[in-house]
Simulated assay, not measured.
Amino acid sequence: MQLFVCAVARGSLSAAGRELGFSPAVASKRMTRLEAALGVRLLQRSSRRLTLTAEGATYHERCVAILADVREAELAVTAGQAEARGLLHVSAPVDLGRRWVGPAAADFAAAHPELRVRVSLSDRVVDLLDAGVDVAVRIGALGDSRLVSRRLARSRRVVCGAPAYLARRGWPRALADLDAHACIVLQRPGMRALSWTFRTEEGLHTVRPAGRLVADSGDLVRDWAVAGHGLAFKSIWDVAADIDAGRLVPLLTDLPSRGSAVHVLYPSRRFQPARARLFVDFLAERFAAHEAAVLAAATPRAAPPAAPRRARPRPA
């Protein structure tokens, strides 16, 4: 079962064998023996990839739960020795991962010498069970009801632009002004472009900018904004350091975006290994320690006064 689940997570039977200490020949023989014992084919194997059969998908889901039960039983009799050890696989968006999750993971690994940490950064939503992820950190709406979530910190999105861009194009003073600006749009594969939603006195107001620059990477959106190519709508956790350093300026802060949060997700509360449980607690402390300072970066700032209109010369 461990070999089968690992092969699905790694996408390779040979890689799964190496991780568990088997040669490719032994791994192949064990998988063949498992399928023969069950009387069904679990995996369609080719030289390039593995694909779960319908029976394999059903068996995989049960195997994940059964192996978690085994780990829980082991922890029950070694509770006093539960330490962060083994491989911890963490997933996070690129921006948030580079600035917050990655450094936290490195610090956590430094404190636990028997732990190996693998951090996967991607702006697409990763299936934790299929990818073999222990812990995922995400911003915004949560979609997978199979997962357990814990809120790490409050968040919000903010419109921001580089000082050089604002000096060239002016500050937007109302939502309607965004139509005259170069807006940088985030659009993930297979999804609509991210809408910009704000809280106004009349309720929620959504803007769907038609930007000339579109990216499926939040990190690239930020880089373009810092370089002065236009305005971005970014999580404050992604751009707080840029705002504090003066590389970006928060705009329209009197019209806050719809509130959101940073969450950590994991497959099961009951069967969480010590390494994941301890890392979740470590992340919660790290985000709580910085939450006030990060949110303060989005406080309202006065725009420069509008340039006075030049008086038209009177005809002679």
Rank of each mutant, 00 (worst) to 15 (best):
M1A: 10
A7Q: 03
V8L: 07
V8P: 03
A9W: 05
A15S: 11
P24M: 10
P24Q: 09
A25D: 08
A25W: 04
V26Q: 14
V26P: 00
R30Q: 09
R33N: 14
L34N: 09
A37E: 08
V40Q: 02
R41A: 13
R45K: 15
R45M: 12
R48H: 12
R49N: 04
T53P: 03
T53S: 06
E55Q: 02
A57K: 01
T58Y: 01
A65G: 02
I66T: 07
A73F: 11
E74K: 06
A79H: 07
A79P: 00
G80Q: 04
A82D: 01
A84P: 14
H89D: 13
V90S: 13
P93L: 09
D95L: 14
L96Q: 04
G97N: 03
W100E: 15
V101C: 15
G102T: 13
P103V: 15
P103N: 15
A106C: 12
A110G: 13
P113K: 12
S120D: 15
S122D: 15
V125H: 11
D127K: 06
V133Y: 10
V133A: 12
D134G: 07
A136I: 07
R138N: 06
G140A: 06
R146H: 12
A153F: 02
S155V: 04
R156I: 00
R156Y: 00
V158T: 05
V159E: 00
A167F: 08
A167N: 11
A167M: 10
R168A: 14
P172A: 03
A174K: 02
D177L: 00
D177I: 02
D179M: 10
I184G: 11
I184W: 08
L186D: 00
Q187H: 10
P189S: 10
A193M: 07
L194Q: 13
G203K: 00
V207R: 12
R208F: 07
P209R: 12
G211Q: 14
G211V: 15
L213T: 12
L213P: 03
S217W: 09
G218Y: 02
G218F: 01
A225E: 08
A227R: 08
G230Q: 07
S235P: 05
I236N: 02
D238G: 01
V239H: 01
A240C: 13
A241P: 09
D244M: 09
L248V: 04
V249G: 07
L252H: 06
T253C: 08
D254Y: 01
A261D: 02
A261R: 01
L265W: 07
S268L: 04
S268M: 05
R269F: 11
R275Q: 05
L278A: 14
L283A: 11
F287G: 09
A289V: 14
A292V: 09
V294E: 05
A296I: 06
A297T: 13
P300I: 06
P305K: 09
P308K: 12
R312W: 06
P313D: 10
R314H: 03
